[in-house]
């Protein structure tokens, strides 16, 4: 299986925008969606990306983050959840797959998302969700991580 591109997620609290050093977290692009994106961080409950969800419209550029949980009954396949999040206007979607072992495998099979879809887990995810819990406005920039040329890596 070919390695996937890694993402750099830089998050800055709006109140620290001028001075503050961003939190940098690594993730994995899926679905051939590697690319750059920027927007405000916005959490979505996993059940809000279902067929029965009404279209809660956000204004302005935002980046959706969803904490997936294996105990939450899956109302839609993750590919459709990712697309639904993008259809709701997200500039990119970040899935915290720390507590949903199958999610990573399911999403890695995807291809051709129109905008970046990134998986995060472990400490990186913990940092991001910790920020969400503070419920403070934050700006997120997602970029492709540049690997040094000579390194062969396999994921």
């Amino acid at each position: 299986e070919h390695p996937l591109l890694r993402a750099l997620i830089k998050v800055t609290l709006l109140k620290h925008e001028a001075t503050g050093k961003p939190i940098v977290v690594e993730g994995l692009f899926v679905g051939g969606s590697a690319g750059k994106a920027e927007g405000r961080l916005m959490q979505y409950h996993p059940l809000s990306l279902c067929n029965t969800s009404e279209d809660e419209r956000q204004d302005g550029d935002f980046i959706t983050i969803v904490k997936l949980e294996h105990r939450v009954p899956r109302c839609l396949p993750l590919l459709d959840k990712a697309r639904m999040a993008l259809d709701k206007g997200a500039q990119a979607v970040i899935f915290d797959v720390s507590d949903d072992a199958n999610a990573a495998a399911e999403l890695r099979e995807a291809n051709s998302f129109s905008r970046p879809v990134v998986l995060v887990e472990a400490q990186g995810a913990e940092d991001l969700m910790g920020l969400v819990n503070k419920n403070e406005e934050a700006n997120v920039v997602i970029e492709i991580k540049v690997e040094p040329k000579w390194l062969h890596y396999d994921v």
Binding site: Q43, L47, K67, E69, R71, V72, M129, N133
Partner: peptide, 11 residues
């Protein structure tokens, strides 16, 4: 019935 720190109630 079922909740988590980040998502609140899930069931």
């Amino acid at each position: 019935d079922r909740c988590s720190e980040y998502n609140g109630c899930v069931k």
